[in-house]
Design a protein around this nucleic acid. Structure first.
Length: 394
DNA sequence: CGTCCACGTCTAC
DNA sequence: TAGACCTGGACGG
């Protein structure tokens, strides 16, 4: 769930579903043993969503798997507000605060964000390709992998053009000298520059009104997939950047493209001959699942390629991608008054976890308590699951 | 079965 | 600049 828009939408969601509610009792962590509720002084909890964090309010009977932190309502059809995080890259922090090196929010602090970038162009962060600089949260707080692709695509900026080169040009725009105010506004709206798009594009996602990037069967997700113009879209190219992240784009990759990445554009829908190429081709999906009774599967099947190769996914279903929009922005209220449990951290590899599932080690450095979502006990049929470990650590 | 991939950080050579 | 950190879905054999 987690680029800027997803965080914003999660905040809205929590405030909406919790409006007027009272929570009581323990705040529960996913291990049965490990909890402690207590009260009751107001405190701030800072959540980071990692790759898969989200909030969900459900009846107790429908507790989601991977619900790592749970707040129970006081009123009687008991419900739970859950922090859910499948991959557990997320964490929460008691009395946490905004990270020191996180820049102004691209959505809520646009002017500050813009200034922060343009005033610091000498920073070596801007020596990098623009697609990599865009993931630097010190300057582009809220931008993530799908947003960088969508933003660059709008202007057809080559992703591996040097960031400073791209951004220096925007300084001149600051003196929009002789124009009247209305002309300036019009110019901005009709020809937004890169930094303006860093605000506008995430706002578009918010205004879709769903949950943003959250795979599932929902109409909302269908709308989100339809909104994407570049990321994972059939016909677009992709490359690995120097951090191994996939950048989707169209056209020229730009001068700083990693070597060994030949930019080939493959046509959509071409099937590779079996064994024809040394490059391994495989299929991937960004899928909109539909209900079984609805006989209209809208599926995308782009092809992703091995490291260091350009990709053009075969086009699959174009129909899933019709542009549409909804209005409606609300403001976020602050989430407060949460009673909390102590932080713990569960290390572990999959194999280790079996024996360690219930162990908890108190957070070691706890000037502030940071918590990784702790692992959950295996349940039911999943109990016997093992899995080859990746990497070679430990 | 196994491999690769995913909305992001983190820290250790 | 590699990995580590995780789970699970899609796909290939």
């Amino acid at each position: 769930m987690p680029e800027g828009p997803e965080l914003f939408l999660a905040g809205q969601y929590v405030n909406r579903v919790c409006g007027g509610l009272v929570f009581s009792g323990k705040v529960e962590k996913s291990e049965i043993s490990a909890t402690q509720g207590g009260d009751q002084k107001p405190m701030d909890l800072v959540f980071r969503f990692g790759m898969s964090g989200s909030f969900k309010m459900v009846p107790v009977a429908e507790m989601p798997k991977h619900a790592h932190l749970r707040f129970y309502t006081k009123e009687k059809p008991l419900r739970v507000l859950c922090y859910v995080d499948v991959r557990r890259f997320g964490r929460w922090e008691v009395d946490g605060s905004w990270q020191a090196d996180r820049g102004p929010c691209v959505m809520l602090e646009y002017e500050k964000f813009r200034e922060n970038v343009l005033r610091n162009l000498s920073d070596k962060a801007f020596n990098k390709p623009i697609c990599e600089a865009l993931l630097n949260q010190k300057y582009f707080s809220g931008i993530g992998n799908y947003l960088r692709a969508e933003i660059l695509y709008r202007l057809k900026i080559p992703p591996f053009e040097k960031a400073r080169t791209v951004l220096e040009k925007l300084q001149h725009r600051e003196e929009t000298s002789g124009l009247t105010l209305s002309k300036k506004v019009k110019l901005k709206r009709e020809n937004p520059d890169l930094l303006e798009l860093c605000h506008m594009v995430p706002m578009e996602v918010i205004n879709l009104g769903g949950k943003g990037y959250e795979p599932g069967r929902s109409e909302d997700y269908t709308a989100f997939v339809g909104w994407l113009q570049c990321y994972y879209v059939p016909g677009m190219k992709s490359l690995r950047d120097s951090n191994g992240r996939t950048i989707w784009f169209q056209g020229d990759p730009g001068p700083m493209a990693p070597k060994g990445n030949k930019s080939r554009k493959k046509q959509s829908q071409v099937k590779t001959d079996p064994g024809a190429s040394k490059e391994k081709s495989r299929k991937k999906q960004l899928t909109v699942k539909t209900d079984a009774d609805t006989s209209n599967p809208k599926v995308r099947k782009p092809v992703a390629r091995k490291k260091s190769r350009t990709t053009s996914p075969p086009k699959a279903v174009e129909e899933a991608r019709k542009p549409r929009k909804k209005p409606g922005t609300k403001t976020v209220k602050k989430v407060e008054d949460a009673a909390m449990a102590n932080g713990t951290k569960t290390p572990n590899t999959r194999s280790k976890r079996k024996s360690a599932a219930l162990q908890e080690s108190p957070a070691t450095d706890s000037e502030s308590q940071k918590c990784r979502a702790s692992s959950q006990k295996n349940r039911g049929k999943a109990a016997a699951t093992t899995r080859a470990r990746r990497g070679k650590a430990q």
